[in-house]
């Protein structure tokens, strides 16, 4: 399994402004609803808020992996976001980088494997802080690809 099979340049957002996770999940839900038909926004947002997990914390840099199952999706999708807080006084558990994994329930194993890979990357020092510092979407994408190539 490779992240590059699920993360495409058009699934990267490096300037999402949000102060707390609920707001971030709302923004991502709106993006997904605009891209895919037949998504129930209310259910997706509820699921994202429920499955809003943190993969790893490195200092003040937190990678979140909110995930949900949406059966109307044709395949697993992964949106990656870099979160910009509006102020310095953000909640200490605010994520800086989020990997949103959404799958149809028939892809449960693929869903699990993708989250496992992201959680492994998140354990490596520097990955989150690197991503949190990259503003350019293409450079952000290349940093993810580099990490993807580095690991078994």
């Amino acid at each position: 399994m490779r992240l590059k099979d699920y993360v495409q340049p058009d699934s990267i957002f490096t300037r999402i402004v949000a102060d707390e996770r609920g707001e971030l999940n709302r923004i991502i839900t709106e993006i997904l609803v605009s891209r895919y038909e037949d998504i129930n926004a209310g259910n997706l947002l509820k699921d994202l808020n429920t499955q809003d997990r943190v993969a790893c914390t490195q200092g003040d840099c937190i990678i979140g992996v909110p995930n949900a199952f949406v059966d109307s999706l044709p395949d697993t999708v992964c949106l990656v976001v870099r979160v910009l807080p509006r102020t310095d006084a953000v909640s200490p558990d605010t994520i800086r980088v989020g990997f949103f994994v959404i799958s149809p329930s028939r892809n449960a194993m693929k869903h699990l494997r993708l989250i496992a890979r992201i959680s492994r990357f998140a354990c490596h020092t520097g990955f989150c802080s690197d991503l949190a510092a990259i503003d350019d979407p293409e450079a952000f994408y290349q940093r993810i690809l580099a990490e993807d190539e580095k690991h078994v």
Binding site: R113, A116, R117, S119, R120, C123, V152
Partner: peptide, 17 residues
């Protein structure tokens, strides 16, 4: 122990459940 977590996550990636 930190390595155990990472290895198990890697196992999932490899389809070892």
């Amino acid at each position: 122990y930190g390595h155990v977590d990472e290895i198990l996550a890697g196992f999932l990636e490899l389809g070892i459940s």
